Amino acid sequence: MIMRNVERYPVEGPNSLWQIYRTVSPWKGIRNFIFIQIARYSPSLKLKNWIYRRILGMKVGKNTAFGLMAMVDVFFPERITVGDNTIIGYNTTILAHEYLTNEYRLGDVKIGSHVMIGANTTILPGVTIGDYAVVGAGSVVHKDVAPHSFVAGNPLRVIREQAKTKDEDGAWS
């Protein structure tokens, strides 16, 4: 596992959250907040994915499902990529930014295909979660997750790492 890949921007004066509208338009924040709330409560997976792709600028693969109450980054959703046939569990938060006392950080979040993210997980900026990975419920993803691995907890720990290969029929084993 590799640590997060984030861009750091130092600030002077009040903490960086007080300076947020120097980094992102307030109108973008308001618009994104409204559409994210619609998506969070919508039972329609098609509507959610349409909002994420067309309005928020996220890259979302085919047959990906965001559970009820999933929360994507309100200020930088365009920095989130999710592959095909992935499930993002209930009440999961995906962040592409973090505002700290003396700096703010931005980082792309890349979630592979056929990934399962358990409920109430927090994914921090700058991480990559590989294809076929499983993240246990309630985890804090603060570093990269290898493909085909099962991770869980806070701090995040590898529970099982398994190399998968395709057999001659094309099935994973």
Rank of each mutant, 00 (worst) to 15 (best):
N91M: 14
W27T: 05
T81L: 10
P43E: 05
N85S: 15
D108R: 12
G138V: 09
V74C: 13
K166G: 01
E78Q: 13
S42Q: 04
I88A: 10
G83I: 01
G112D: 02
V109L: 06
R53H: 06
L45K: 06
I30D: 07
L106K: 01
A133P: 02
T93M: 15
I2C: 05
M116K: 11
E98C: 07
V140S: 07
R157I: 15
G107A: 01
I159C: 06
K143F: 00
R31N: 09
G83T: 04
G29W: 15
G170T: 00
P77A: 12
G112T: 01
G130I: 08
E12I: 09
R4H: 10
D73C: 14
I123S: 03
A119G: 07
E168H: 07
R160D: 08
R22E: 07
V82S: 13
Y52F: 14
I38T: 02
G170Y: 00
I2F: 05
W18T: 07
K143R: 13
M58W: 03
M69K: 13
P125S: 01
T64G: 03
Y52P: 01
F33N: 15
T93W: 13
T128C: 10
I111V: 03
V72H: 02
A96L: 11
I117Q: 08
D167L: 05
I38M: 12
N32Y: 04
N15A: 12
H97E: 09
G29Y: 15
L17Y: 15
P26E: 03
A163C: 03
Q19G: 13
M71V: 08
M1Y: 08
P125Q: 08
E168G: 01
A152Q: 10
W172S: 00
H142K: 15
Y21K: 14
K46H: 09
Y99C: 12
H114K: 12
E103I: 00
G138F: 01
G118V: 04
K48Q: 07
N85P: 05
E161W: 07
D84C: 09
K62N: 14
T86M: 14
I123V: 04
G57F: 11
L56S: 13
P14V: 10
D131P: 08
G57I: 10
S149K: 04
N120I: 04
N32H: 11
D131C: 06
V60R: 14
P155K: 01
Y99T: 13
G153L: 08
